[in-house]
Amino acid sequence: MSSGFTEDEMRRALGLDTPTPPVAPPVIVKPEPVPVKAAPLSPKEPSKVPVKRRGPMLRVTLQVSKEYDGEETRFVHDAKTLSRFDAEQEAKKALAKAGFKYFVVESIVQVD
Rank of each mutant, 00 (worst) to 15 (best):
A98L: 05
P19H: 08
F100T: 04
K101A: 12
R84A: 09
V29E: 09
M1L: 14
P21D: 13
L95F: 04
P25W: 00
A38H: 06
P26K: 05
Y102S: 02
D86F: 10
Q110K: 15
V27Y: 01
S2P: 05
P26S: 04
P31V: 03
A94R: 06
Q89A: 15
A87R: 04
M57T: 04
H77V: 08
V109P: 00
Q63S: 12
V76C: 08
D17F: 06
S65K: 00
V60W: 01
D78M: 05
Q63E: 06
T73A: 10
F85V: 08
K97W: 04
P25F: 03
P35A: 07
L16S: 01
Q89P: 00
A38I: 13
D86E: 15
V49W: 05
P31E: 08
F85S: 09
P50S: 12
R53F: 03
P56V: 11
G55N: 04
P46M: 04
P26A: 10
L58M: 10
D8N: 13
V49S: 09
T61C: 02
P50N: 09
P43A: 07
K37V: 12
V76Y: 03
D69I: 03
Q110Y: 04
F5K: 14
V104H: 10
L14P: 00
P22A: 06
D78I: 01
E45I: 03
A91E: 06
V29N: 03
G55A: 02
K80Y: 15
V34Q: 12
R53T: 10
P50Y: 12
L58C: 06
L95V: 01
S47K: 13
T81I: 02
K37A: 11
P43E: 07
L58T: 04
Q89G: 04
E67S: 13
K66E: 15
R12W: 01
K93Y: 08
F100C: 11
V49M: 05
A38T: 14
E88S: 08
G4W: 12
V64K: 01
P25E: 09
V105F: 12
F5D: 10
G4Y: 09
S83R: 11
A39H: 07
F103W: 09
R53Y: 05
E88C: 06
L95K: 02
V60S: 02
F103K: 02
K92L: 10
V23G: 00
R12D: 09
A96P: 01
V111S: 07
K44H: 10
K48F: 13
R11N: 15
L95N: 08
E90R: 05
A13V: 09
